[in-house]
């Protein structure tokens, strides 16, 4: 494990304008005081419910929103020193895969055109072409001649991943990248991400509300709640021995495909007073 993390986020705060009077804007902190690191070649899973600030954190790293405070460092470079225009190298180093694969592909562009645009954006002596990209994400080459609407959800998400890979990034932010997919498709995409991580030693910032998926793919996990990172640590550690009450509640709420476990949990929920005694 390298000494310096690839991505270091420290005391990040992001606020949104809620509404404005003529003089003053009312602001709301979507992310408060969040710190974590992503090691090179590893996956950091950011899990939380809607409104927890997990996507906003990702958008700050992507420089799609401007932080109100805190620092983000990528490979030793402070993003705060970038100025209004994001340098080209950073745009190539950090890429994103969004949740809705249909909305994240331009509906008027053929798959090949989407990928060509991405390749051109990152063109600095790369040898690969559209066909190689399609091979890399396990899509048939002739799918390049289709529109996004003519593809299945899983195929679209593969195209979105191929587009991200076109510029040879070092960190890919997956913002609910498998949440809109069926479970069997989900598994295939996760397998693909794991394979790509191995082959290209990619780092992933994997943002999801789905605890099971995050556990499967992450080395480190952070749990977000109402804008704060309430707990973080090694994935197995957090899942097996959650320290924060919110993490425990989250883990207990997500139903697992095992009727016996679910029956026990329900019994526990119905008798909260016994639980407190047990804990006491």
């Amino acid at each position: 494990m390298p000494d310096r993390p690839l991505l270091r986020v420290e005391n990040l705060r992001v606020s949104y304008e809620m509404g404005r009077t003529l003089w003053k804007a009312r602001r709301f902190d979507a992310v408060k005081d969040v710190s974590f690191t992503v090691a090179a070649g590893e996956t950091f899973g950011l899990v939380g419910e809607s409104g927890s600030g997990k996507s906003t954190t990702g958008r700050a790293v992507l420089r799609l929103v401007r932080p109100a405070a805190g620092t983000i460092e990528f490979d030793g470079h402070d993003l705060g020193a970038f100025g209004p225009r994001t340098p080209r190298w950073y745009r190539q180093a950090v890429q994103v895969v969004f949740q809705d694969p249909l909305a994240s592909l331009n509906p008027r562009h053929l798959v090949a055109k989407t990928l060509t645009l991405a390749l051109r954006a990152g063109n600095d002596g790369g040898t690969g072409g559209v066909d190689e990209l399609l091979d890399q994400v396990g899509l048939a080459r002739e799918l390049g001649g289709r529109y996004p609407a003519e593809l299945s959800g899983g195929q679209r998400q593969r195209v979105a991943i191929a587009r991200a890979l076109a510029v040879r990034p070092r960190l890919v932010i997956c913002d609910e990248a498998v949440s809109a997919l069926d479970v069997s498709t989900q598994s295939q995409i996760i397998e693909l991400l794991l394979k790509l991580q191995r082959e290209l030693s990619l780092s992933l910032l994997f943002i999801s509300h789905d605890l099971a998926v995050v556990r499967r793919i992450s080395h480190q996990v952070g749990v977000m709640h109402l804008g704060s990172l309430v707990e973080q640590g090694g994935a197995e550690e957090v899942y097996r021995r959650p320290r924060h009450a919110y993490t425990r509640m989250l883990l207990d709420s997500a139903p697992v495909p095992d009727p016996v476990v679910q029956r026990e949990r329900r019994a526990r929920r119905r008798a909260p007073q016994e639980l407190t005694e047990e804990e006491a």
Binding site: L62, L64, T86, R88, R91, Q92, V94, Q95, V96, F98, Q99, D100, A103, S104, L105, N106, P107, R108, H109, L117, A118, A121, G122, A160, R163, A166, V167
Partner: peptide, 25 residues
């Protein structure tokens, strides 16, 4: 829409995003 965000993340310039990505839509 995320496809515009994706274009920004790829580093496409603002005119190219406006005329190449958004205008056709």
């Amino acid at each position: 829409l995320p496809y515009v965000d994706a274009a920004r993340v790829l580093g496409l310039s603002a005119p190219r995003i406006m005329f190449g990505q958004i205008l056709p839509n």
